[in-house]
């Protein structure tokens, strides 16, 4: 993986008619990187991906790939692969012909073609399937065919749209490892789009969190997970307790509390449930919900800030609903946020 930018999006603005989907987006991707575009639906991640592929016209800005401006290059000459969420296989062609489709267009035929297709199918573990028809395959197998079909083209960038969303839980784990293996073996630069933070954290070298058409944060999975830049990202990666900092006060959805300790210089603070100690501390709340989660027990407290979620060892005695308890929101255990809202 080199550090030089391989694919850059420069001040990219995309629109459907008059409605702007992505605005002034700047992003660079390194060669051989596995990048995740993460965000809720409608955040512009799919639109961004489609514009890289050339399926979505660019309103303004540039896309540069391997030193060449490809903003106006048509989709069939971009050398970018895309595995569609629906796989978009050709149902009237066999597995072999699906994988051979692009190679045939390049004029390849005979033994060279067969060898390339076979290699592609072997890479995804479908060597014995080349004569099958598409409708005979399971969802997981279809996705592998789609992957092989893109891989044999040796694309400069391979993109995947929600690659795991159509698979059941067991296949999802399997495909996750598979994707990582294929990416490491082929060294292809890979971008995948997902709304699932677990997938992004598990797979990606780097994550781009998007919201309303702009980038909210870019970072490694560790950075995103431990140091969310904003309340939006914090909420997305499981910080369930978020408060705004105003002077020495913490402000929540329902009200505010005064913090006895000195608060850090941040717009807000965020705590995961396990970072909120129960039974001691300067604040008080009433238990409104208890749920048992194996090794731990989760409580929802009604507090002056609004609902606060905590998670404590299941071995500790249970508190009944309605009990008033002390709790703490220790600033040193919180992730400082640069931006709220």
């Amino acid at each position: 993986m080199s550090d030089a930018p391989y694919l850059s999006l420069e001040k990219l603005t995309l629109a459907y008619g008059k409605s702007i989907a992505v605005e002034n987006l700047d992003l660079t991707i390194r060669k051989g990187e596995l990048l995740a575009l993460l965000g809720p639906s409608g955040c512009g991640k799919t639109t961004t991906m489609r514009s890289i592929a050339g399926l979505m016209p660019v309103k303004s800005g540039r896309i540069v790939l391997d030193g060449k401006d490809i903003t106006r290059v048509s989709a069939n000459r971009r050398e970018i692969g895309l595995v569609f969420q629906s796989y978009a296989l050709f149902p009237h062609l066999s597995v072999f012909e699906n994988v051979a489709f692009g190679l045939r267009l390049q004029g390849m035929s005979g033994a060279a073609l067969t060898e390339k297709v076979d290699t592609g199918l072997r890479t995804v573990g479908l060597s014995d399937f080349s004569a099958r028809k598409i409708p005979e395959l399971s969802g997981g197998q279809q996705q592998r065919v789609a992957l092989a079909r893109s891989l044999v083209m040796k694309p400069k960038v391979l993109m995947l749209d929600e690659p795991l969303s159509n698979l059941d839980a067991r296949l999802r784990l399997e495909m996750r490892t598979e994707l990582q293996r294929v990416q490491k073996e082929s060294g292809v630069t890979m971008i995948f789009v997902t709304h699932d933070q677990v997938e992004a954290l598990a797979l990606a070298d780097r994550i781009v969190v998007m919201r309303n058409g702009v980038i909210e944060q870019i970072g490694t999975p560790e950075e995103i997970y431990n140091k969310p830049a904003s309340s939006f990202v914090a909420d997305f990666v499981g910080f369930e307790n978020i408060a705004t900092v105003v002077g020495n006060k913490l402000v929540g959805s329902a009200g505010e509390v005064t913090c006895p300790a000195t608060l850090p210089n941040a717009a807000g603070l965020a705590w995961r449930p396990h970072a909120v100690p129960l039974g001691s501390g300067p604040y008080r709340g009433t238990v409104r919900g208890v749920s048992y989660a194996g090794s731990s027990r989760e409580y929802v407290l009604e507090t002056p800030l609004g609902p606060v979620k905590t998670e404590v060892d299941a071995a500790l005695p249970t508190h009944q609903i309605g009990t008033e308890l002390a709790f703490d929101l220790p600033p040193e255990a919180a992730a400082p946020l640069r931006k709220i809202g």
């Binding site: 592929a53 050339g54 399926l55 489709f101 692009g102």
Partner: peptide, 18 residues
């Protein structure tokens, strides 16, 4: 007929007409 099949073909190097 899903329209992403045509897009897939284009990304594999085909023209729109092809």
């Amino acid at each position: 007929l899903r329209s992403d099949m045509e897009e897939a073909a284009v990304l594999l190097g085909s023209t729109r007409f092809g």
